[in-house]
Design a protein around this nucleic acid. Structure first.
Length: 788
DNA sequence: ACTAATAACATTTTT
DNA sequence: TGTTATTAGT
């Protein structure tokens, strides 16, 4: 263990060894920040700190897991797993559950994800009869999020005239009321959103000095990674917890602060020494990752920012090659040029390449070109596994099972799979719940007491649903998570629903459900082995999974593919060769950020992050025209290109650096391009035809995500076309009692009763998998099965 | 109650 | 352009 110090440079060593008081470690890009953190934690354990007395906070589960693994190799797994290591949200979720009674929640409270929050806000805004254009749910949500991050509760909102003013100015005077209602509804539903985890932690510590004291005692040493990305709520939690012993170490890089749109406050790191005046400052300035040219280019760029901690990042690696700039006429050309360049630079490993872009929308066009050249690739981001409909549906069952009051989960599954409880009924329940101030579940639990105006048939269906969920939760008390999950999938009807049709959509859904079940199984086994828990409960799994993102699921490491992702997603990663595409005004910097100097500086930091991902080569490209939001726009190269020392750039011929504008036509322009410029409207058609006949399917890489729109255009396969005759809407003659029919949704069934005639003929059909249903022949697309 | 059609809309997103 | 949410029609 002693010899690890030899693996560190002077700055790293000093940072690792100083443990007497607060310290701030400013770690430049690629300077071995993780190494310092891991050795520091390992060192603390060696010098007598129990692992359970160390709190280490990160921003991603992935970062936490990686660090834990690395520490485990030094001190052993037994010790490492006792550390309090995780994201802010997951650690304080754990604590909040243990202390739930002190803040008016039940210990089984659930987490609303972003879309849950938005749905709830939408229904509140609707309920208040406000215009959802002025009160755009997204805007309202980010406003509320901002308030929570700054620890403004609905109560404290009352006395803040400055906030009212802001709302008036934004022409949203009702924000206050919406915020109030939202908080109420979350409380009723026994749910917290992501921001609440931090807000309520602060409230817990504020109102319960004893509890705060307890955790101050527990956490004898606190470390925080990526401190530049903390918001005020997180900053204050840390401040409170460290208040007793001042054993705190914050690590970060102000130059890499790129999440201010989510409430991160760069001032937290810039003013850290004001919070802890006796704080020691360490700077890690040697970059081990990149060539000198890349480091110097990045330095010259970030130098243009005013707000920053002075530092001198340097590299002793090779000088390396210049930053290459590629200019093209169109976005399609750009993607093609990048793909071509990758092929040229390819030396046997696609893993060495990453393409970074500002917005996810840019990925598709790159994807097309990669397919064309049959370069294997993988896209990070897009819709996460946990946001897929079928996964969310199943998770909603879990949520409602563990917390009956969870309103958003309730709404999702009350009629999924279809059980004849439609919009009308749901609206009645919602009204009823609102007027009586109770949860949806309370209403259906006692429809008489709350005067729910439904007929006996509906009441019966509601009762059946209630019983179903209650059975699940009864079982969930004793049996393990996997058993319950398996039972829910089968008994809820989800499985039947998915096995109705053999459509490609359903196939992937089945796979996703299976994958989720598999992960539950693995989770249970892991917990059993690690903690010796006899029964891993569903609540345990939910606690884990509610805060998990796609990035956390293990990626097959031994696949050799080019990585495509947003710049944001690339933070913390490194690649031999980096391509940064779409380096244009309006796009990078984004036109949403150009309004303020702060916005521009953040975009510049974002570009800094992108460049510093590269170890050896960095290629930057821009197009002069780009298809965006349905129309072609002409664009200029990004202002940030001028911020890089021109000596470090290899510029295209047509780039006039002195003016920073495109003044001369591209010498390489093809005839096709000239044509396109004159006929921009015809261009798309041409491209489309070219691509659709291009046969990209043949070389489809194994690990790329299928393009969703293409996949959904496939038609479901019918089982045996020859044996089926379609029934026209006017003739039901061939349907009799005893006839076997196939319904699009419900599958195969036998007609057991017929009533009415012609236009409103109803059939009662016993379906194989779905049970008995009444079907209006006029609307149902039934197929009569002749043989059988 | 469900599907098809149309209108409206678009950053980044560790949790 | 692509997606998503509401609406109209069967």
């Amino acid at each position: 263990m002693e010899d690890y110090l030899n693996l560190l440079n002077k700055g790293q060593r000093d940072a690792v060894l100083y443990n007497d008081g607060p310290s701030l470690v400013i770690a430049g890009a690629g300077s071995g920040k993780t190494r310092v953190l891991t050795y520091k934690i390992a060192g603390l354990m060696q010098s007598g700190y129990a692992p359970s007395s160390i709190l280490a906070l990160t921003f991603t589960n992935k970062a936490a897991k990686e660090m834990k693994d690395r520490i485990a190799t030094i001190v052993g797994e037994e010790q490492a797993k006792r550390l309090w290591m995780g994201t802010f949200h997951s650690i304080f979720y754990r604590i909040l559950r243990m202390e739930a009674d002190k803040i008016g929640f039940s210990e089984s409270f659930t987490i609303y994800d972003t879309s849950d929050s938005r749905n709830l806000l939408k229904s509140i805004i609707k309920g208040m009869k406000l215009d959802d254009k002025t009160y755009n749910p997204n805007k309202v949500h980010s406003r509320i999020s901002q308030l929570k991050n700054n620890l403004v509760t609905p109560q404290s909102y009352m006395g803040r005239s400055d906030l009212h003013e802001t709302d008036m100015h934004a022409r949203m005077p009702a924000i206050k009321d919406i915020y109030f209602a939202y908080t109420e509804r979350c409380l009723k539903a026994g749910a917290m959103d992501f921001d609440d985890l931090l807000l309520y932690t602060n409230i817990l510590f504020r109102d319960n000095p004893g509890t705060l004291y307890k955790y101050q005692q527990i956490f004898k040493f606190i470390l925080v990674d990526e401190y530049q990305d903390t918001n005020f709520a997180q900053h204050l939690i840390i401040k409170k917890l460290a208040d007793k012993h001042h054993h705190i170490c914050a690590v970060g890089d102000d130059a890499q602060s790129i999440y201010s749109f989510r409430g991160a406050n760069i001032a937290n790191i810039l003013n850290f020494k004001d919070t802890f005046p006796e704080c020691k400052l360490f700077k890690l300035e040697q970059n081990y990752r990149s060539t000198q040219n890349i480091v110097n280019a990045a330095n010259s760029l970030i130098d243009k920012n005013k707000e920053q901690i002075k530092k001198n990042v340097f590299s002793e690696n090779d000088e390396g090659s210049l930053i290459e700039i590629i200019s093209t006429y169109s976005d399609t050309d750009e993607a093609a040029a990048v793909a071509r360049r990758i092929e040229e630079m390819y030396k046997g490993k696609y893993n060495d390449f990453a393409i970074l872009y500002r917005t996810n929308a840019q990925s598709r066009i790159l994807e097309d070109q990669m397919r064309k050249r049959s370069i294997p690739y993988k896209i990070y981001g897009g819709l996460s596994f946990y946001q897929r409909k079928e996964v969310k549906d199943l998770l909603s069952y879990f949520r409602l099972t563990t917390n009956h009051d969870d309103e958003e989960a309730f709404k999702r599954i009350i009629n999924y799979p279809a059980r004849g409880i439609g919009e009308t009924t749901l609206n009645k329940i919602a009204d009823c719940a609102l007027t009586h101030g109770v949860s949806y579940w309370d209403v259906i639990s006692d429809t008489l007491r709350y005067n729910l105006p439904v007929n006996s048939g509906t009441a019966l269906k509601l009762g059946a649903f209630k019983t179903l969920i209650e059975e699940f939760s009864q079982e969930a008390k004793t049996r393990d998570a996997f058993a319950i999950a398996d039972m829910i999938v089968k008994r809820s009807g989800i499985l039947n629903e998915l096995f109705q049709e053999r459509s490609p959509e359903n196939m992937t859904r089945q796979q996703n459900i299976e994958e989720l079940l598999k992960s539950i199984h693995e989770f249970c086994e892991k917990r059993q082995e690690e903690d010796g828990e006899e029964n891993v409960l569903l609540t345990d799994f939910l606690q884990e999974v509610s805060l998990l993102t796609d990035q956390d699921t293990d990626t097959e490491e031994n696949t050799d593919v080019v990585t495509l992702m947003t710049v944001h997603a690339s933070k913390g990663l490194e690649f031999k060769n980096i391509f940064i595409v779409g380096m244009e005004e309006e796009l990078f910097p984004s036109n949403m950020s150009t309004g303020s100097e702060d916005g521009i500086e953040e975009e510049r930091r974002l570009f800094y992050v992108a460049i510093t991902r590269a170890q050896e080569n960095c290629v930057i490209s821009y197009a002069k025209s780009r298809f965006r939001n349905g129309s072609t726009n002409y664009c200029n190269p990004s202002r940030f290109l001028k911020d890089i020392d021109p000596k470090l750039l290899k510029l295209p011929q047509d780039y006039m650096l002195s003016h920073g504008r495109v003044v001369s036509p591209d010498a390489n322009s093809s005839r096709f391009e000239m044509f396109r410029r004159q006929n921009p409207s015809n261009y798309n058609l041409q491209v489309k035809q070219r691509e659709s006949s291009g046969g990209f399917k043949a070389n489809q890489p194994r690990f790329s995500q299928p393009l969703s729109n293409r996949q959904s255009s496939f038609k479901p396969l019918s089982n045996n076309p020859n044996s089926i005759s379609a029934v026209s809407n006017t003739n039901f003659g061939n349907i009799k009692v005893g006839t076997f029919v196939e319904h699009e949704k419900f599958g195969i069934g036998k007609v057991i009763e017929l009533e009415g005639t012609d236009g409103n003929c109803k059939a009662t059909i016993m379906f194989k998998n779905m049970g008995q249903k009444k079907i209006l022949l006029k609307y149902a697309k039934l197929k009569v099965l002749n043989d059988k």
